[in-house]
């Protein structure tokens, strides 16, 4: 997280005005708001902040999930290693209980209890993985995407310990032999680096939607959370949506509309 000269002067000026002293400078320098009492939404800025809304009710059949997961894993050359020990995944499903631990109740509808929920990197506004990375191999782009620089990763796996969402996978061995088909337009990874969903940063930079969203038939929405007129904001404004482990304060950018329209 670098700050340029103008930002620094701005920050320094604000600090001097508010008289808040070192804390707020430290806070800005750390770039993720380590010291912040309020957990309400940050002030609107002209900056983009990409976010995703998953409308759970629109996923009906096994096929709906498979389509989305395969679109991602095929695009990014994510291998299927066939065992949980070496497993690498960018987007996957699990039950409500495992997706939202602590939110389950004893008397939930069976349909909800056994329904699969999609999980992927939350691209947190305050990503603990970025905070702990000793080489800035994982970092947050100005548009909110939490990226991996596989060239720089030393494979210490501190980010895996720090991520409360289990979004990160490690290449315990060379992933290439396990690839069934190869997308020649995208790299693979090498052994010894951590990997995860990158919100299709390369596609977004070209003006495309993430591969999973494109394959979801409208069940997943993607857009700018800072733009009140964006599709994601409209969906969030008209439906009740939850995030995973909200209480940890990492401020995920992936939202789940649980009940569909009728529960709005």
């Amino acid at each position: 997280m670098s700050i340029d000269r103008r930002d620094f002067i701005k920050i320094a000026g604000i600090t001097a005005l508010s008289g808040a002293g070192g804390f707020s400078v430290l806070d800005k320098m750390l770039g993720e708001g380590l010291i912040e009492a309020s957990e309400t939404a940050t002030e609107a800025t002209s900056k983009k902040r990409w976010g995703m809304v998953i409308d759970v009710s629109k996923f009906k059949t096994e096929e709906d999930y498979k389509k989305v997961i395969e679109a991602c894993h095929r695009t990014h050359n994510v291998p299927d290693l066939g065992n949980p020990k070496d497993e690498i995944k960018w987007i996957w499903t699990d039950t409500f209980e495992h997706t939202f631990p602590g939110q389950e109740t004893d008397y939930m509808a069976e349909s909800m209890k056994h329904k699969p929920f999609l999980m992927l990197c939350n691209h947190c506004e305050k990503p603990p993985c970025v905070r702990v990375c000793p080489t800035k191999a994982t970092f947050k782009r100005p548009d909110g995407i939490v990226m991996m620089d596989y060239h720089r990763c030393i494979g210490c796996r501190f980010c895996m310990a720090a991520c409360p969402f289990g979004a990160r996978s490690f290449n315990w061995k060379d992933p290439r032999p396990a690839l069934k088909s190869v997308n020649a337009e995208y790299p693979t990874r090498t052994k010894g680096v951590v990997e995860k969903c990158n919100f299709c940063a390369d596609r977004i930079d070209k003006g495309l939607l993430p591969a999973c969203v494109e394959a979801s038939n409208g069940a997943m929405l993607f857009g700018d959370l800072n733009d009140p007129d964006s599709e994601v904001r409209k969906a969030l404004g008209s439906h009740y949506a939850i995030r995973r482990k909200n209480e940890l304060g990492t401020r995920p950018s992936v939202y789940y509309i649980i009940g569909g329209k009728e529960n709005a």
Binding site: M1, L30, G31, E32, R131, V132, C133, P134, T135, K136, A137, R152, C153, I154, G155, C156, R157, F158, F170, N171, K191, G192, V193, V194
Partner: peptide, 26 residues
């Protein structure tokens, strides 16, 4: 023990090349 735990040990100097004060590992 830190060294043998690294997935990419040849890149260990990245910790010094890209010093990151917000990382406790640094």
């Amino acid at each position: 023990f830190i060294f043998v735990d690294l997935g990419q040990p040849t890149r260990i100097m990245n910790v010094m090349l890209h010093p990151t004060p917000n990382s406790i590992l640094f």
